[in-house]
Design a protein around this nucleic acid. Structure first.
Length: 414
RNA sequence: GCGACCGUAGCUCAGUCGGUUAGAGCGCCGGUUUGUGGUACCGGAGGUCGCGGGUUCGGAUCCCGUCGGUCGCCCCA
């Protein structure tokens, strides 16, 4: 008989167990806790969307749309795409579910996203993000609220020390157009001195030359026209209000006038929380204002701001969370005790006490199991204990052991 | 799409100027101790050396190809 080959996991996906999974969970639980503090409502949207949701909103020419989407035709012939980001899907839901009636809306979500890319450190084909959006609020206070929230999430995760908030404004629509054409003109004059990559960027995405890593581009990019020259008074005031709010809230930030975001829909505030501890993937959390996005999905003009952060990247930065443990592990000895243990463990769990059962091997094995599970107490039940209606409760950190009547068991192992 | 490095036990890795039967630590199973974990000691199981071809008396080791992984470029969380 031919040997059956075990199928391999899909490239760029991960299976998590133990510390990796604990880290991941800790990030999600911290996010969930903090978003409640800020009154962000949990929202769930589909992992799959019509391809048009992303093709229209992200900008047809961005790499994400042109070559990184997981798209397929379903049995009905419709083009479906696994979401490569949250924002577009959340906006689609805002429009199709009539959530305008709840605006302004503070929303939070998290889950898997998919991008067809070469995997490397902190980059996966299936990756996960936490995400926050404020939809229907055009005031700079919304940007502040969102950024203070982001700052507290990072703070509570204990990663804020090595992480810097870099902040910029892309101005309003008019600003962006004027600045963009000034940049194109400037870079075209220096075309011959630019790297090959940046000469290509000049055609497709000139703003991206600003944050090029190529040393040949740096002097040219650093001397490029500044957005501040083209920014309208309104946009400047808007940015001023945002930074003022951050200062009052005690959020540290630095201006980075070279920071641009990859996706076309950003206006006004753009920001990234950046670290140098993740190799080539420095951005830990990024986002900005996307006032034009709703219209590109056929909705009324609706101002909105949002951010997203890679859970895997955060999980790599945080200190190792404490290993999970249980209050008590039952160690039954003999058939009668094993049956009785089923009832006892049910009572403990109903009382809110985490408990597990060591059901295999001799007593040594079972005690070992209790130890491996990180139990605070081992509850030993043999024929002697059963006859007396008690259990031997051993404190596994001190080694002390006492007989406790079954009726008092719950309070003995809290 | 491009480039570099790496594939040896369940895991982390040693072994490679080509040469008996491929090793260690951890983990797993059993024992010292048939009602007592964490530390210790003894024993055991577990390997197509990623796969295919080539050179050679002889390949885990050298060469070519291929698949997989990692990191970087592009792009991006």
């Amino acid at each position: 008989m031919a040997k059956i080959e075990t199928p391999r996991p899909v490239r760029g996906t991960q299976d998590m167990l133990g510390e990796t999974a604990d880290r991941f969970t800790h990030v999600v639980e911290t996010f969930e806790r903090v978003r409640r503090l800020y009154g962000f409502r949990r929202v769930e949207t589909p992992v799959i969307e019509p391809t048009a949701v992303f093709a229209r909103s992200l900008g047809e020419t961005t790499d994400v749309v042109s070559k990184e989407m997981y798209s397929f035709e379903d049995r009905g012939g419709d083009s479906i795409t696994l979401r490569p980001e949250f924002t577009a899907g959340v906006c689609r839901a805002f429009l199709t579910e009539g959530w305008q009636q709840f605006a302004p809306l503070k929303l939070a979500t998290h889950g898997p996203l998919f991008r067809y890319e070469r995997p490397q450190k902190g980059r996966y084909r299936q990756f996960h993000q936490i995400d926050a959006e404020i939809i229907g609020a055009g005031e700079p206070g919304a940007d502040v609220e969102l950024l203070v929230f982001a700052d507290q999430v990072l703070r509570e995760l204990g990663v804020s020390d090595g992480v810097t908030l870099r902040l910029n404004t892309l101005g309003d629509g008019g600003t962006r157009i004027a600045w963009r054409s000034a940049l194109i003109e400037y870079f075209s004059d220096h075309r011959a001195d630019l790297s090959e990559d940046s000469q290509e960027r000049l055609e497709k995405n000139p703003l991206r030359i600003l944050d090029s890593k190529d040393p040949r581009d740096r002097p040219i990019a650093d001397a490029a026209p500044d957005i501040d020259t083209y920014i309208t008074d309104e946009a400047r005031d808007f940015f001023g209000s945002v930074t003022e709010g951050l200062n009052v809230a005690g959020v540290q930030w630095v201006r980075d006038s070279r920071l641009v975001r990859g996706l076309d829909y950003y206006r006004h505030t753009a920001f990234e929380f950046v670290t140098d501890r993740l190799g080539a993937q420095g951005t830990v959390l990024g986002g900005g204002r996307y006032d034009g996005l709703m219209e590109s999905l056929g909705g009324h003009p609706t101002p909105a701001v949002g951010w997203a952060a890679g859970i895997e990247r955060l999980a790599m930065l945080i200190d190792c969370p404490a290993a999970p443990s249980v209050n008590a592990v039952l160690v039954p000895l003999g058939e009668a005790a094993e049956l009785a243990a089923i009832g006892i463990i049910a009572t403990l769990r109903h009382a809110g006490i985490s408990a597990d059962l060591a059901f295999k091997g001799n007593m040594k094995k079972r005690m070992q199991k209790a130890n491996d599970l990180g139990a605070r107490f081992a509850i030993i039940i043999g024929d002697d204990e059963l006859a007396k209606g008690v259990a031997s409760v051993k404190n596994l950190s001190t080694g002390a052991q006492d007989e406790v009547s079954l009726a008092n068991l719950v309070s003995a192992v809290v």
